[in-house]
Amino acid sequence: MSPSFLKISNLSVAYEQVYALRDFSCNVEEGRITALVGSNGAGKTTFLRTLSGLLEAKQGVIEFDNADITYLPSHKRVEAGLTMVPEGRLIFPDFTVEQNLKIGAVSKRALGQVEDSLENSYKIFPKLDQRRHQLGGTLSGGEQQMLALARGMMACPRLLMLDEPTLGLAPLISDAIFEMVVHLKQIGITILIVEQDVNRTLQIADNAYVLENGVSIMEGTAREILTDPKVRESYMGI
């Protein structure tokens, strides 16, 4: 439980001149679920895209496992153990379920145990086992999200970053996804989750940050934030 598992210091990210994230610092502790909540346009997705190397930081430092990874290309971050499950799932529609999973184990580290990981994925997600030869594009939204999660797990991540995993899913399916996230934590995966469903996310998270217009306005344990009257008013309508 070293506090410096993933440490972000004074991170700023901009699209041209417009800052989407400003001077943001946070810590992700190993073995915990850390949540980042906020409304549309708060900078949540920008943050995850920067962490996975799709966007470049303007300022600030990202340290993973005491190594500076601020300017590392995406595939090297995956190699180091940082894997993102992107918003909108982005599975490969013309690949079968099994091909989708296998390509998730693209890094050298994951490649060595691809068969074990595959078996493991099917154990965790039995639905995918039934559909292993079906094309990814023919799955339902919930199944595609499961597939995206499983594909992320194939990379043998040490930190799994989830971008809006319940976006556009029916409430029942969302429940299943949240349960799955808790299950992943129980098997030892550190999780960083970004969500609009503030209430349910905070219920499963350990620590949380609240983002507004690219700036962190609150941080603490998920319980503290969940019970904060201001948060309850602005994000949960209570």
Partner: peptide, 14 residues
């Protein structure tokens, strides 16, 4: 299929 997804999951696309 999807270049961005490929990049996200660690395919060295470039």
């Amino acid at each position: 299929e999807d270049e961005e997804a490929a990049e996200t999951i660690g395919v060295p696309v470039a």
